[in-house]
Amino acid sequence: MQPINRKPSNQGQPHGQKPAKQHLSYSSNIKPLGSVAQGTAQTLFGQKASKQLPKRDPAPSRTSYKLQRLWLTPMVRSMAKAAIPTLGLLAIGFYLVNNQGLRDHISTRYAETRESIQTRPEFMVDLMKVSGATDRVGDQVRAASQIELPASSFELDLPIIRKRIEALDSVKAASLFLRTGGVLDIVIEQRNPVVIWRNKNGLELLDANGIRAGVSQSRLDYAKLPLIAGEGANADIAQAMSIFAAARPFENRVRGLMRIGTRRWDLVLDRGQIVQLPETEPVAAVERLVAWQSAQQILARDIKTIDLRNPSRPYLRLTPFAMEELRRVRSINLGVETKL
């Protein structure tokens, strides 16, 4: 007798051979029993679940039916959609117009709320950071921005502050950023002075394009910058700079450049010497002067003016003493007695 609930084994059957017909039918008899039991449970459960749900009544309640009909009435609909909101707004407006106290109350409450939001620590700016500028320019920028910190970021009008900062001579461009942590970051692109220009108003600093980069009280503050002078001297800074560069071999003698008649340069040296440069190609003239100097030490001589305006023929103007001496030497050479 075989136990019912044990699967029949294929022991004793040769491999590859089909099990006996009896075995097949037996095993197929067992399996459905289990599956039937399972299936029954599931189906019953499913049926129970579906049966327990009460059938929903699709009919609308009388109230909802009436309400829907009311809503579909064109009059009611237009009232609810247009007339009642309009009337409500009108009533509110009328009440406000006629009630000064309420209006004041609303406006003060509005201002208070606005203030309390604006002065929250998240929106406060406590620190100003100026980068890309020298200390002196940085101080100028701080002063020019006219901000009193701490301030709310709502009150900071960055475009106006930027305009104020960029109005400074020494600032070429400025970018302002509100960083997290309440930092106002001002990034400055500075305007670098290359020459100092003495004019009617005093000493002005100019950058390479001839644009004013500041004002100086004293020449000594910018002792390293070359000096230019004269009306219209700011018109051609590039030429002036190349003249200074060409005059580098005797730079310790150069005092500055003087614009003459707003068209040409005079190179002013110490001891009151003046080199008059031509209107065209002044740099070439300076280079010739350098050659001349190295050949004959022309500048070391007692000459008041070297006129290089005519490239084919330089003129020299001697000091009166030198002129006197020259005449004396010439007369000696001619055998003329000199009066002592």
Binding site: P58, A59, P60, Q68, R69, L72, P74
Partner: peptide, 18 residues
């Protein structure tokens, strides 16, 4: 009456007309 209400309400809803 409920059945009529259901039908009428459905048709009104579809038509958007009372």
């Amino acid at each position: 009456e409920r059945a009529i209400r259901t039908a009428v309400q459905g048709a009104q809803k579809m038509a958007g007309i009372r």
